[in-house]
């Protein structure tokens, strides 16, 4: 194989309880360090796709390889989970320890890192997401945006090779969004970002895929897809304001 893809979906499908297909016929490849947006209306299957990539949701058809490893084989799951970080759509699912610090330290400790390394990593990550002052706060009592930042930290701290983010900008204030943008633009990981925040996509992702009713509708440069008014309208989305004002596509903002 000429190119080593970080993510390779071939005809992947997911059909819970033998009911309707939530996802079907998904072909997708992601090269290392690519930043790809996963777009689509509510219920399109974005979250399901991210969950399939880490083996939380089973693959009922086709194949998914992450980091060259087949996801459907149970024996590979542990190694895949070492190299992939998933940030859940609901921060409450992600935060399960009493304090922010303990939550962020959980992953590195499970990796068996020494306490000095854990502490250094936790502090620098909390600093990066603007939560250094909340290290000792009770996770459950944070505001929604703070929970979002904390759950981001719990995954960033593990320094995975591939990052899957599910609606990462939800609940973030403008400063929080800019912070997230900076972190993602600087990070060396391959990114897959499911989101409805199209302005964010324009600034962070070079590429986008569009899902609707479990099907992959299109795959291409983010600015091109987002500026296609007819396509966006057909699938319950709309051209972001910044593109409408200029009337022509702009290149992804770096």
């Amino acid at each position: 194989m000429a190119v080593n893809f970080d993510i390779e979906c071939t005809n992947a499908g997911y059909q819970p309880h033998h009911g309707h297909w939530v996802l079907r016929g998904i072909h997708l490849t992601a090269a290392p360090r690519e930043r790809i947006a996963v777009l689509g209306p509510n219920g399109a299957g974005k979250t399901s796709l991210l969950h399939m990539l880490v083996g939380i949701k089973p693959i009922h058809e086709g194949q998914i390889r992450v980091g060259g490893v087949d996801v459907s084989q149970d024996s590979h799951i542990a190694s895949i989970r070492q190299s992939v970080g998933l940030i859940f759509q609901e921060p409450d699912d992600q935060l399960f320890c009493a304090t922010v610090y303990e939550d962020v330290a959980f992953g590195p400790r499970q990796m068996g890192l020494s306490e000095t390394v854990v502490d250094a990593r936790v502090r620098s990550t909390l600093d990066a997401v603007g939560m250094a002052d909340q290290a000792c706060s009770v996770s459950h009592h944070l505001s929604s945006g703070q929970k979002r930042r904390a759950s981001l930290a719990t995954v960033l701290v593990m320094q995975p090779k591939i990052l899957l983010l599910d609606e990462p900008t939800n609940d973030l204030d403008p400063r929080g969004r800019r912070m997230l943008e900076r972190i993602l633009l600087d990070c060396p990981q391959t990114l897959l970002i499911a989101t409805h925040d199209l302005e964010f996509v324009l600034r962070v992702c070079q590429r986008a895929i569009l899902l609707d009713q479990g099907r992959l509708i299109t795959d291409g440069p983010a600015s091109q897809i987002l500026s296609d008014a007819r396509l966006m309208d057909e699938h319950g989305l709309e051209v972001p304001g910044s593109l409408r004002e200029r009337h022509w596509p702009v290149s992804s903002g770096e």
Binding site: I56, A78, Q110
Partner: peptide, 12 residues
């Protein structure tokens, strides 16, 4: 889901 999140972060 929390159980999944724990496993994703290396809990065995």
């Amino acid at each position: 889901r929390v159980d999944q999140a724990m496993r994703l972060r290396g809990f065995t």
